[in-house]
């Protein structure tokens, strides 16, 4: 506890880095997964290759990805963008299927009605399908957020500062206080991400809280 009180500022700095490295890819990943998931729905032949193919990316060990990416992207090994790209890959891996399934769950008669009303395909997506897909997409986002918070810590091994540094530091010194603080901080961060996503989803779906027929 004394260790934590002595290092509050350091832990906070690392936490901010952690939020940045886990959070930004979550947003970029969603923006990439939306068109990919839409394509998987629009062209049924793409569904299986897309969901299975992108899903496979998740099986690449994070450490391997952190080390391989500089070679592929031409970045330096300590560049934070390697971590951002890697985390984006994991987010996309999780969200393509989610988005495709969320769009697939939009009732057919609602889509038909929208088309019959004269929505263009593009407008229908943003005005009808996407809003109705929010609850399912939000559920997928919550999984991806927790996964990102957890995986980012591995980047400590290659020296990118975030909460994971507390683990490598504690391990190197056989000193458990930073490890415990790091675990608690990761837990709090994951919870915070979860709550933010829930709150945004709630804001976007007032219709979900309307009661049944009276």
């Amino acid at each position: 506890m004394t260790w934590f009180l002595d290092h509050v500022q350091d832990v906070l700095d690392l936490a901010v880095q952690h939020v940045y490295l886990a959070g930004l890819p979550l947003v970029i990943g969603l923006l990439l997964a939306l068109p990919l998931g839409w394509l998987a729905r629009r062209y049924p032949g793409l569904y299986t290759p897309f969901t299975a193919g992108f899903g496979l990316l998740y099986t690449i060990p994070s450490l391997a990805l952190f080390i391989l990416l500089p070679g592929i992207l031409g970045t330096r090994i300590l560049d934070r963008s390697n971590v951002l790209v890697a985390m984006t890959v994991y987010t996309v891996a999780l969200l393509v299927r989610t988005v495709a399934d969320a769009l697939g769950a939009v009732p057919d008669d609602v889509k038909q009605a929208a088309t019959a009303m004269g929505f263009t395909r593009f407008r229908r997506f943003f005005a009808v399908e996407l809003p109705l897909a929010v609850p399912v997409i939000a559920a997928g986002m919550r999984v991806a957020a927790v996964s990102n918070v957890s995986i980012v810590s591995v980047a400590a091994v290659i020296g990118i500062p975030q909460l994971g540094l507390l683990f490598t530091d504690g391990f190197a010194r056989s000193f458990y206080d930073p490890i415990v603080v790091g675990l608690a901080a990761c837990f709090v961060l994951a919870l915070a991400f979860d709550l933010v996503i829930l709150a945004v989803a709630r804001l976007l779906t007032p219709w979900q809280r309307a009661g049944g027929a009276s």
Binding site: P107, D109, V110, Q112, A113, A114, T115, A116, M117, G118, V128, P131, L132, T205, W207
Partner: peptide, 17 residues
Amino acid sequence: LRRGMGYVIQHAGLFPH
């Protein structure tokens, strides 16, 4: 063409949101 025609279907097909 479609905006110039009203369309009503069985379960109304209303937008739930």
